[in-house]
Computed example of a mutant assay.
Amino acid sequence: MSWTALAHPPDTLALLALALAIEAGAGYPDALYRALGHPVTWIGRLIAALDRRLNRGFPAARRAAGVVALGLLLGVVGIAALGLTAAAGLAGPVAGIAVLAVLAASLPAQRSLHQHVARVAAGLREDGLPGGRSAVAMIVGRDPQTLDEAGICRAAIESLSENFSDGIVAPAFWIGLGGLPGGALYKAINTADSMVGHRTPRHEAFGWAAARLDDLVNLPASRLTALLIVAAAARHRGASPAGAWEAVWRDARRHRSPNAGWPEAAMAGALGLRLAGPRVYDGVTVRDAWMGGGRAEAGPADVERALAVYRTACLLLWLLTAVAATLLALV
């Protein structure tokens, strides 16, 4: 088998199924992070260097520089990922997929997302508002001091829902389509958006290309994430798949983000909550539509219910991947 075969289904789906299982079971080991860092930190250093060197001048020049920077970023990441795929191909089909799966396991974040969100519920239960605010500040950008218990819990559930889409389902989608290069290129785009895709004086023009491309590449995953949450809700007593679907149909397109509303509306409807709505970032209130028509008063038990739905949705994602890989291998 040539190395190029490892960049096409069914092998990309097989390595995705293995990568998801590895990451769910082991995450990204702390010792490895301390020794070598993480692919996102490597990508982040390159983005920061490009930002320092190219982000200057008047707005039109900054926008053009942002396009160039994004192209350079994707070129470097794509070449590196293709090189690793080629090297893995030399080991043969089975060993090659195993090697690529270990590498690809660094791209989704099922385990770490669960841990961070679970700490919010634990912080509230153990240390009250200070504990909850400290934990939620690790996963959201809004000012935690403005949040009461309900606001903390809504923020944690919103973060869980949105990051399930762009931190897990989206890299999985692109790994499934394009193997390690597909997943790595997605992660580069998403990291660039998180670092420079903001409407601030420095980055509004420079980060325009990254923000628009991130919206595009997240579009299929956000819809798939909503469907996974709807299906997962059917497996939990007290969760409503019909409510999830109704909220998606009614509210998802009303969110200021073209993608975040889909998983947030699905989770809100599944749990009988209202998510999103007005929020405070750096002292500025952002007026956004509510997702879901339930209660706004969320508590730690609701965070734990959301985590239960999330775990089932992750399992469904893996099952879909494994079944698709098996069926394609039999064709």
Rank of each mutant, 00 (worst) to 15 (best):
A252S: 14
W290S: 05
S134M: 11
L107V: 04
L320T: 04
T4V: 12
A308V: 09
R199M: 14
P300L: 07
L13P: 00
G299K: 02
R202V: 14
R237N: 10
R223E: 13
L224R: 13
A308H: 07
R142I: 09
L177C: 06
A324I: 00
R111C: 08
A211N: 03
S159H: 03
I152E: 02
E23K: 12
I139T: 06
P9G: 03
A91L: 15
L328F: 14
Y33L: 12
R295M: 09
L103Y: 11
A184P: 01
V99E: 05
L54I: 01
T146V: 15
H255A: 11
A242V: 14
D30N: 06
D302H: 11
R256Q: 08
A91Q: 07
A21F: 12
I79E: 09
G243Q: 01
A239W: 00
R235G: 15
P29N: 07
C153K: 05
H198A: 03
I139M: 11
A88L: 06
N190S: 09
K187Y: 02
W290C: 06
S2T: 07
A242H: 10
A170K: 03
I22S: 06
V169L: 07
I43K: 01
A24S: 10
A234T: 00
R202H: 14
L74Y: 00
G128E: 11
A21I: 06
V136C: 09
D193A: 05
I139P: 08
G207M: 14
A324L: 15
W290A: 13
L73P: 02
S165M: 13
A17C: 09
D30L: 10
G141C: 03
A31Y: 08
